[in-house]
Structure formats: structure tokens, C-alpha cells
């Protein structure tokens, strides 16, 4: 099957592999620990670990967009900030 029309590049392929790996990882986690460990964190809303991943990924996207719009610095800093943000979300949200 020819997927050249999708105009793949190595960075975008790695990006999607990372996203799919995360989803598979969450699936495996859910299999061994079902229920999603719901809890109410600092946002005062009940979140499962799937919700926390969603909030982390959405927040990371916004951090990268804001970084691009506001600074000229390397995007690796935005990635580092996103990882810190995701850890915070999984710990406190």
C-alpha cells in the first residue's frame, strides 16, 4: 500500500508513534488496573487517568503553540515544559 500521498516525514512519524505508544500503554495499564483510578484533584472535577492523559496532551499542544507564537527559543524547551506539566497533571489533577 502506497502512503506517499500522506507526505510522511520522520519527525511527524515519530510524533504519531509516540502518541500511539502512549495510547497502547494506557490500554495495558487499564487492563492490569481497571477502572482508571478516578479521583478529584485541584481542578475539583473527577478525572480518570485517561482524562489526565487527555489534559496533558491538550495542554502540551497549547504550550507548543504558545511557545511558537511568543518566543524564538527552541521547541525542545516547550517539550521539556510539557513533560513537567504532564507530570503535574498526573500528580495533582
Amino acid at each position: 500500500m502506497d502512503f506517499s500521498w500522506m507526505a510522511w516525514t520522520l519527525p511527524t512519524a515519530l510524533f504519531f508513534i509516540a502518541i500511539f505508544a502512549m495510547l497502547i500503554g494506557m490500554g495495558v495499564w487499564e487492563y492490569y488496573s481497571p477502572g482508571g483510578s478516578p479521583r478529584v484533584g485541584i481542578l475539583r472535577i473527577e478525572t480518570t487517568r485517561g482524562d489526565r492523559l487527555f489534559i496533558s496532551l491538550l495542554g502540551a499542544a497549547y504550550i507548543h503553540i504558545a511557545w511558537l507564537g511568543l518566543t524564538e527559543l527552541s521547541l525542545w524547551w516547550a517539550l521539556a515544559l510539557s513533560i513537567v506539566y504532564a507530570i503535574g497533571v498526573f500528580k495533582f489533577v
Binding site: 500521498w5 500522506m6 507526505a7 510522511w8 516525514t9 519527525p11 511527524t12 510524533f15 504519531f16
Partner: peptide
Amino acid sequence: LMTVVNYSVQ
């Protein structure tokens, strides 16, 4: 969506 992401960096 993946195609759009690919286009957005090229």
C-alpha cells in the same frame, strides 16, 4: 488528521 499534520510542517 495525520496527513494534515504532515502537510503543516512542509
